[in-house]
Design a protein around this nucleic acid. Structure first.
Lengths: 189, 189
DNA sequence: CTATGTGAATTTATTCACAGCA
DNA sequence: TGCTGTGAATAAATTCACATAG
């Protein structure tokens, strides 16, 4: 909107755009102080800046990726992570055939060197290992002093509460669609 | 658990495993009739079958993917979709250089042929086009008679309410982590 | 007038607590 | 005894409704 020269937007239009209720929009923003102008709406530029600040997308932190398999390689290659404040600065794997190889300018290291993260000021871990290895990887990352974990393995992992985990389980999302699809009634008969 | 020979599991253990509250587990299951045995728990096999049935993962439906770009190719290649009842049976794109090519045994077709979906009994659409094209793609899919849409574009799309949309926006999930990370305090000072 | 910000009302989700079954 | 299923109690999220600012 900013690029298109739009100056401001109302909670109603924002709600339409997002498929939500206008009150929801206003209430949510109000929790962070409220930055709209009565009678006008929200200044697009200002709103964007505020949201960036609230979500802390305005600062970049170094991250280490563990598990350079199929998914891991894709994540490593995906530069879009920078927008969200993640700078993938290191990659680890257990496979000796991969260790030492370079991918996207990052040399793959042995997971036994995870402990060096603290020293290297890397405090986000990205888990892209198979499910069975997810918990031990998380443990190692916590031991290495990371403060946040992005978990791509389809499982719940346990960490001390000072560490924040965000699990991204596409499979879980996928499984939602069939449930809502009316066509499935066909098998109920 | 079933593979490991475990016969049954209690709501407490299930809750621990998922990071939830036992009551939550029992309440949720009870909405679908309740299939546990007092004093014992839930029979693992039976539970799995029930959940499959509830989520309708036990039936497969044909799906068409639109947008064979980076993401689209990955999705097309990912056979794991079958588990969730999706059988990707067709792929479409606008790029004439891609049309006619084969990928994973599927010949890429011109999007202008989307209307053939109804005839081909394909009633799920998978959107992997750039954001700007997402809404028009959704419109075309609805016109072609799909009943469900899996939207990988980072935007809200509008469809008639008889059509169910599940949007998978990894970026949105990613953006959550920085917010919760304590280390970010560094910039607040 | 228009659209925000926010208490109050409402709705929805979660948790408690316990009767009753295996 | 151990654990489910479920009403009742509690907590949380959403929506209403309106006073108030531009």
């Amino acid at each position: 909107m900013s690029k298109e020269g739009q100056q401001s937007i109302s909670s109603r239009d924002l709600a339409d755009f997002l498929g939500a209720n206008p009150s929801q929009i206003r209430k949510d923003f109000s929790y962070f102080g409220g930055f709209g102008t009565p009678g006008v709406g929200y200044k697009v530029e200002k709103l964007a800046k505020q949201i960036e600040k609230i979500l802390k997308l305005d600062i970049t932190q170094k991250a280490a990726l563990v598990g350079v398999g199929n998914l891991g390689s894709v994540v490593l290659a995906y530069q879009g992570f920078r927008i969200y404040g993640f700078d993938i600065a290191a990659a680890f794997d257990t496979d000796s055939k991969k260790i030492g190889k370079k991918l996207n300018n990052i040399t793959i290291e042995d997971v036994s060197n995870l402990w060096t993260l603290k020293r290297r000021k890397i405090n986000i871990g990205i888990i892209t290992v198979p499910r069975d290895a997810a918990q031990e990887t998380a443990d190692a990352l916590v031991k290495a002093g990371v403060k946040g974990i992005l978990n791509f393995s389809p499982c719940y992992i346990t960490v001390p509460k000072k560490v924040k985990v965000v699990t991204i389980d596409i499979a879980m999302d996928l499984a939602r669609l069939p449930y809502y699809m009316p066509a499935s009634r066909a098998t109920n008969t």
